[in-house]
Design a protein around this nucleic acid. Structure first.
Length: 819
RNA sequence: GCGGGAGUGGCGGAAUUGGCAGACGCGCCAGAUUUAGGAUCUGGUAAGCUUGACUUGUGGGGGUUCAAAUCCCCCCUCUCGCACCA
């Protein structure tokens, strides 16, 4: 027997499978489709680490298993090439981003082939390819036509380090998603997509998705639906006699009798109108200072102590006609609600802190359980019975909120209202490396979509961004100056490009028919393959890509292009692989392990098997080279147990061993089948190891099982095939099993009959503690088991003469005797 | 503070509906074979002592049950996400 030489096997089988076109896929109406998608990566210069394999190898195993189950499997790969990461890398290395993308995706593809992921490479796509991004532009125009794309000038999130504007999602927590620096504001005219119009659908449709609870919770939280009421406070400027309506948003209308002041955000547009001349300078200075601060500074400072200024102006509480002072303070956010609040210090912690500092009265109006708690020291936040609340006194908070909202509508002083945290999606970027926004600005016609697609990104030598907030494309004068498609007059192209997340909002559709040139996708192919049956990637996309892609899918559904409302039926997040020091793998820590070195040392099969075996799919795990050495040893054991016992040699049949072998085979087939279907790869591998241990321990009895042994080996190789394709096919060939490759075999079934043994071991407990064991024939009845248990010497000894008070029998498992 | 997830040997982790805790692997110990081994094979490996068909043991404390890692209540720790959202 020659030794297990993984290198030889890899060199032998790769070209064979390639010639067979094993991984190519097409629409076949007779077969059930299965679409398994890995998040398409941005190909970074660092290449793949074994951490990426934690995603790609398990999905590959699923795909191979599904093929063996008879499914027509779509498993594509592509490159999220447009966007900031590629451009940053290009600037750093002085290489054109197109070149960077080409080099890096070559590396990725090579590495993916190294571990033999079964992608259909004929469907490879690249979001920076004009044949792809012309359709991204097409969808931009579609959103424009549906009134879902608009331009708006305002203070935008701006990352000074990256010199780029950010969407709300990309600037979560006041931190840039790319570089981690603090985000500031910059006044810019930008393109937005009206994702807020889809907030309710994005929220409610989550319920039916088979996604990790954490991701769903994050999206719900991000959408942030809250039910409340808008109430109008009439504001009067005593100096100018100017009066106007100040709408405030509250979720606690039940507390309005305790509203003792109002607060406007520093950005509120009406400040100028209501501030008195005496207070003017102070208020304006405060507002200007607040606006200049970064969100992070504002939050950090204001959490410690509240700041604000009195405007000199008063507002009328519409419920009790009390005159309350109006303040400007930075703890009220410009972007939420109406940027103005009614403040109830008795029942809101923030208002309480502010009222204490500024000496504003605190009026208690909610009594939990009917008992006033006192509110001088701290606010009472809980619901309760209303007190001091006019005709509403005595109601419970929840009924009060409903009645008081009805009252507001009757009196025309307000209405029930629903608000969301999610903001419209800012999509324009002042960057070179992206899909140009296909809009032409004409003085006569305004913003006009360019239907002549693609709007090709012009070649530029210097594509570095600057601090101006203008795109480098603005410097490509020849490209910018054009004619209006509507009136033919002189016009200028929009010089911004789309954020990378726009390009990735529809790529999963393109994979169904990646070579279409006169439409974004073939509707028939999309109907056949989509929605995605299994989508796998890291959790970092929770409130970015995953929410954007859901939004676009719904827009396309509304347009009649799709017949489904959710793009990804099942979502799973793979856990991260940490270095052997327990730290995230990174260049600076020098703890990166690459698949290349592991494949060179132990082979692709051993790496694949270890990735599956190291722990649960979702778990964060530490890399251990001893671990991969273990799976390598296992493969060597498989090699020898299969080859050393091959060939037929007639001996006396051992029926007991045959039954035992059948039992172990059926048990393993069942366990591996069920585990692979539930993403429990680690226990599937463990089951195979147990099985091989069993075979190995009984190898000298192989001939006594005759053809049953050979059949067991056949099944073992099929079970291993999705996980370790090289050794499986090599052994399949050497065993002369029928069919040209093991991966095209049908997945084995198991016979439940084989799982029934002649006898079973029953545990005998006394008061829940194991005191004896006994073997009984399978199917022994409750009474018989009880009788046998009680007559065991050990049990009689423990029980003495007394009759047991109670005996519980679990047939086939245990007996518990209570004396 | 709010929301999600998780706490089991020296380590990674197993354990359908509550029913033998620690599968499988790593590491370690002993033995065999070997010129040698970071190779291979065999056996052992939760802790404790009074070495027993013993006792204790799944973050801590209570509870339900014949029986709890699993169910219920309280608490602690870790981790991820969000966070002045009125």
């Amino acid at each position: 027997m020659d030794p297990y030489d993984f290198k030889k096997l890899e060199e032998k089988w790769k070209p064979v499978w390639n010639r067979m076109g094993l991984y190519r896929t097409g629409v076949e109406s007779g077969r059930d489709p299965f679409y398994c998608l890995d998040y398409f990566p941005y190909p970074s210069g660092a290449g793949l680490s074994v951490g990426h394999c934690k995603n790609y190898i398990p999905t590959d195993v699923i795909c191979r298993k599904k093929r063996m189950d008879g499914f027509n499997v779509l498993h594509p790969m592509g490159w999220d090439a447009f966007g900031q990461p590629a451009e940053e890398y290009a600037i750093k290395t002085g290489t054109h981003p197109a070149e960077v993308t080409r080099i890096n995706s070559d590396t990725y593809r090579k590495q993916m082939k190294l571990v033999e992921t079964s992608y259909d490479w004929e469907r490879e796509l690249n979001s920076s390819d004009p044949g792809y991004y012309m359709w991204t532009q097409y969808f931009f125009n579609l959103l424009f036509d549906r009134g879902l794309a608009y331009q708006f000038e305002n203070d935008q999130m701006w990352c000074p380090a990256c010199r780029i504007v950010l969407s709300n999602e990309e600037a979560a927590g006041g931190i840039c998603w790319r570089c981690g620096d603090e985000v500031t504001r910059k006044k810019l005219k930008q393109w937005f997509f009206r994702i807020t119009e889809y907030a309710d659908r994005l929220l409610y449709d989550l319920d039916d998705l088979d996604w990790p609870e954490g991701i769903k919770a994050m999206q719900r939280n991000w959408i942030g639906r809250s039910e409340g009421a808008e109430v109008i406070f009439r504001v009067h400027n005593p100096e100018t006699d100017f009066e106007f309506d100040l709408p405030v948003y509250t979720t606690r209308l039940d507390t309005i009798y305790g509203a003792t002041f109002c607060v406007l955000a520093p950005e509120h547009p009406d400040i100028e109108k209501l501030v008195t001349s005496e207070k003017h300078d102070e208020v304006m200075k405060y507002a200007a200072e607040a606006r200049a601060k970064s969100d992070l500074e504002r939050t950090a400072a204001a959490e410690k102590k509240k700041t604000g200024v009195f405007t000199g102006c008063f507002a009328l509480n519409p419920y009790n006609s009390e005159k309350v002072p109006v303040y400007v303070a930075d703890y009220v956010l410009a972007g939420y609600g109406t940027a103005a609040i009614m403040a109830v210090p008795a029942h809101d912690e923030r208002d309480h802190a502010f009222a204490v500092k500024f000496g504003i009265p605190i009026v208690e109006v909610i009594a939990p359980g009917g008992i006033p708690r006192g509110v001088e020291e701290a606010a009472t936040v809980a619901d309760g019975q209303l007190i001091n609340s006019g005709s509403f006194t005595g109601l419970e908070s929840d009924t009060a909120r409903k009645r008081m909202a009805e009252y507001a509508e009757e009196q025309r002083i307000g209405k029930p209202d629903v608000r969301y945290r999610i903001r419209d999606w800012l999509v324009s970027r002042q960057r070179y490396w992206g899909a140009p926004i296909p809009i032409i600005h004409c003085e006569k016609c305004g913003a006009v979509p360019d239907r002549n697609l693609p709007v090709i990104l012009p070649e530029m030598d210097n594509f570095e961004p600057d601090d101006s907030g203008r795109s480098p494309l603005a410097r490509a004068e020849e490209w910018v100056n054009t004619t209006c498609p509507q009136c033919g007059g002189p016009a200028r192209r929009d010089t911004d490009t789309m954020a990378g997340f726009v390009c990735s909002s529809w790529y999963f559709l393109r994979f169904a028919s990646p070579h279409e040139s006169d439409r974004p996708f073939d509707p028939e192919a999309v109907k056949y393959w989509l929605p995605v049956d299994l989508y796998v990637g890291g959790a970092e996309h929770a409130v970015m890509h995953l929410i954007y892609a859901r939004f676009w899918t719904k827009v396309m559904y509304d347009e009649g292009m799709l017949d489904f409302i959710e793009p990804f039926s099942v979502l799973k997040n793979q856990g991260m692989i940490l270095g052997n020091d327990g730290q995230k793998m990174s260049k600076s820590k020098g703890n990166i392990v690459t698949p290349d070195e592991m494949v060179a040392k132990y082979g692709a099969d051993a790496l694949r098997l270890y990735i599956l075996f190291m722990g649960p799919f979702e778990a964060e795990l530490e890399w251990s080279e001893e671990g991969i050495a273990g799976t390598y040893r296992f493969l060597k054991r498989v090699w020898s147990v299969v080859l050393e016992t091959a060939g037929s040699q007639s001996t006396e049949k051992d029926e007991d061993f045959i039954a035992e072998l059948r039992y172990n085979t059926a048990r393993t087939v069942k366990k591996v089948t069920m585990d692979l279907d539930t993403f429990a790869f680690n226990t599937a591998v463990a089951a195979m190891m147990e099985y091989v241990n069993f075979l190995s321990a009984n190898r000298e009895r192989a001939y006594a099982a005759g053809s049953i042994w050979i059949d067991s080996i056949r099944k073992l190789l099929i079970l291993m095939a999705p996980m370790t394709p090289f050794i499986s096919d090599e052994l399949w060939e050497r065993m002369n099993f029928p069919g040209d490759t093991v991966i095209s075999q049908e997945w084995p079934a198991w016979d439940e009959q084989d799982l029934v043994l002649d006898s079973v071991e029953i545990v005998v407990q006394v008061k829940g503690k194991i005191r004896a064991r006994m073997r009984v024939p399978s199917g022994t009845g409750t009474d018989e088991i009880k009788k046998r248990a009680l007559s065991l010497d050990r049990i009689e000894e423990l029980l003495g003469d007394s009759e047991p008070a109670r005996v519980i029998v679990v047939p086939g498992k245990l007996v518990n005797i209570i004396p």
